[in-house]
Nucleic acid binder design. Structure first.
Lengths: 314, 314
DNA sequence: CAACTGTTTTTAATTTTTAATATACATCGT
DNA sequence: ACGATGTATATTAAAAATTAAAAACAGTTG
């Protein structure tokens, strides 16, 4: 098997969703229109149409495409097949790195790992190349890879860099004109935080997304691709961190929401010193949370996970 | 042909250099020692020894390895074969991006480009994945790559981010204890700049390396892997920039050396405001130099370079 | 018996090949 | 004539295959 057909499956499912909203007997748009609507090439559209015809959901001859019946939910490809192999790999790899107690500076065995993660060596290799920008894995000149690990040192360096960037954003933000759209966005964020706080008992899990939104909004004022790139790393780390560190989650998130509200209010006051103080206070909490999670990660489900290879030289 | 034997050739050349310093009749160290000295595995050492024996440079039987005669310079592998394919590719690609007038947002044709750069599509693909962290090329979800290009906007964002990082370094640096090794390093740098300035007429090309050394030294006080990573991007961009932008080179470098000297002196004064001012002055010049090079790049040797494909949709 | 060598096994890097997808072009229907 | 379709071709993505190099192991020698 060469290239996977995730795109086809994903397009097929999307097409079913479109058909569900249509009346039987209705004509379908042209192949070109469907292609641009689904964001794929006509080749895929035609494969999808061919299959739809085969299972008698549509009739198709030349430019005549008519919906025969509404598709069933069970006719969709299961989500697990649609999710691309790359996404699955990222999930599994990050879970492995952040959740288990793999020793720092462990040499990675690509062929072994790829077997255990259920992918080809090639895909793991590509993933490691992409992932190495985050500084958690590193390629050795002598060949092979090392896992530097999500260590306390890593958390500190990440947090320091983050604080430097976000303080620069804060400085720029408070100096912005009152007409700038950022003020509306901050108002909206304050409202959404308020709403979440009122229902925190049930919705506390929604905090992760809101956290990402606030920091992305603040850093957006820099309008800088390197800032955006780093913010996306932060988002990823915190996303997985929140996902797996469920202890004290509700309490911790309640504290964080209040900090966010104070932070937003300080920004809205456009008083630089006040905003800096609120920013630093929140970032310090985030740093502590991250740090606490590094030293104390508990090994879970050690079975089925890769063995710990010998510690390398380099 | 699968894996290339660059490592072998490089090790062979290194070995010849070692043998040139030895007297004929002398005994060679053990395979293990040679391996660690050359930074390769015993397998390569043994291949090298086997070849040396075959061309009668050494005698070899068991653990008895004796130098028979001094090797000739002509017996080395030519440098062009030793340089790894990856390095060659980076060189050629960056030359293409920074030196020619490829339109921004040009769609890249991997198979065509790889042919023109003399590598396999796979290697180009890997290179693009690694290189995409710098934001000059981007992978599309619909498949394929776009060259975002080294545009004026790129130069601005790069410079802004750089200034933010370096000012943070300056702030941290001037607060360091007098016993910290950084002060000695700055003294050395000042001396080397002075020496270069005296011989600037002939040695002005050495400035590029010194520039890199100064900024790396300053940013080293952050002791942060993200700072280091970004500094290496800066180094790369400026390295290629200096290499190909020869106009006014001598004059420009003379100015920059004087700025560096003022910068170093300001740092040594440990006066934050003075250091900040000197830093900003130099970084502003660097930004201007970079910016000037984006708008006005002259197309050279358009033949043999890839055609400009159609502008993509995305 | 400790360091070294000879040999075998494992792992990584790279090319070649294959399937999926995109694109271009000719053709057809209205 | 214009937009849509049918068909052919080109390109990308990923696996399989191949070779280089590293590591592990066993035996040897001083």
């Amino acid at each position: 098997m060469a290239r996977s057909n995730d795109r086809y499956k994903s397009a097929y499912n999307q097409m079913l969703e479109i058909l569900e909203t249509m009346e039987p007997g209705h004509e379908l748009p042209s192949e070109t229109n469907l292609a641009s609507e689904l964001g794929v090439s006509r080749t895929i559209v035609r494969s999808v149409l061919a299959h739809l015809q085969k299972v008698r959901i549509i009739s198709w001859r030349g430019r005549r495409k008519r919906l025969l019946r509404r598709p069933l939910g069970s006719e969709r490809f299961p989500e697990s097949e649609v999710e691309s192999a790359a996404e699955r790999l990222e999930d599994r790899f990050l879970e492995w790195v952040l959740r288990t107690d793999v020793a720092p500076d462990t040499r990675l065995n690509v062929s072994l790992l790829s077997r255990q993660f259920g992918t080809s060596p090639h895909m793991l290799q590509e993933f490691l190349v992409r992932f190495s920008r985050f500084g958690i894995v590193e390629h050795l000149t002598t060949g092979g890879w090392v896992l530097r690990g999500f260590t306390a040192q890593y958390a500190i360096e990440l947090s320091e860099f983050r604080e430097m960037i976000e303080l620069a954003s804060v400085k720029k933000l408070v100096a912005l004109d009152v007409g700038h759209p950022i003020w509306q966005e901050l108002d909206d964020l304050a409202r959404d935080h308020q709403l979440l706080l009122e229902e925190v008992e049930t919705r506390y899990r929604d905090f992760s997304a809101l956290d990402d939104r606030l920091h992305s909004t603040i850093n957006s004022v820099q309008d800088n691709r390197f800032t955006r790139e780093f913010q996306s790393l932060i988002s990823m780390i915190f996303h997985y961190h929140y996902q797996w560190n469920k202890r004290l989650e509700k309490q911790r998130n309640t504290v964080a929401i209040r900090e966010h509200l104070a932070y937003i209010e300080a920004l809205l006051s456009r008083d630089l010193e006040r905003a800096r103080a609120a920013s630093l206070a929140h970032l310090a909490t985030a740093r502590q949370t991250l740090l606490a999670s590094t030293g104390t990660t508990v090994p879970i489900e050690t079975s089925q996970l890769p063995d710990r290879p010998a510690v390398p030289a380099e």
